[in-house]
């Protein structure tokens, strides 16, 4: 990550470690990442957005296989990257791990897992967060 990434990463720890989104207590819609206000309820949602911990359960909505990875992910290629429909509503993009690329299917049930995402080389900070694996 570029210089200055540590404070940015630190601010996002609740989302990255524990999938903390938020919920509009006006219309009950769940958001991830959290939003300042609900795009449906607008000003009615002000002051009514509450933290909401997602279960980490979802399924593959669509996916691709990354063969030419960016520098920090080269060692892991080829690997699946999916848009995941979470049980509570939000869709998120994440890597699928512990799974053969041939076994990834649309509709496959997933659960979140805690992994190292990347680091700032051998001397920099290590960034952790969510990835997903198959759920039986």
């Amino acid at each position: 990550m570029a210089e200055g990434a540590v404070p940015r990463f630190w601010r996002e720890i609740p989302q990255r470690y524990n999938l903390i989104g938020n919920k509009c207590n006006e219309c009950e819609k769940v958001f991830f990442p959290p939003r300042e206000s609900c795009p449906e309820c607008r000003r009615k949602s002000m002051g009514k957005m509450k933290d909401f911990k997602l279960s980490g359960e979802g399924e593959v909505l669509t996916y691709t296989i990354i063969y030419e990875a960016s520098e920090k992910f080269e060692g892991q290629a080829p690997y699946p990257l999916a848009i995941i429909q979470l049980k509570e509503g939000p869709k998120i993009t994440a890597q699928i791990v512990d799974c053969d690329i041939e076994d990834v299917k649309i509709g496959m049930k997933l659960k979140s897992t805690f992994r190292k995402i990347q680091d700032d080389g051998y001397v920099g900070a290590i960034y952790y967060g969510y990835k997903f694996k198959k759920r039986n």
Binding site: Q76, F114, I126
Partner: peptide
Amino acid sequence: PSLDQDVATISVESAR
């Protein structure tokens, strides 16, 4: 361990 696993990730999975 895979490239994205270390003592922190193993500890978190065990504790969870």
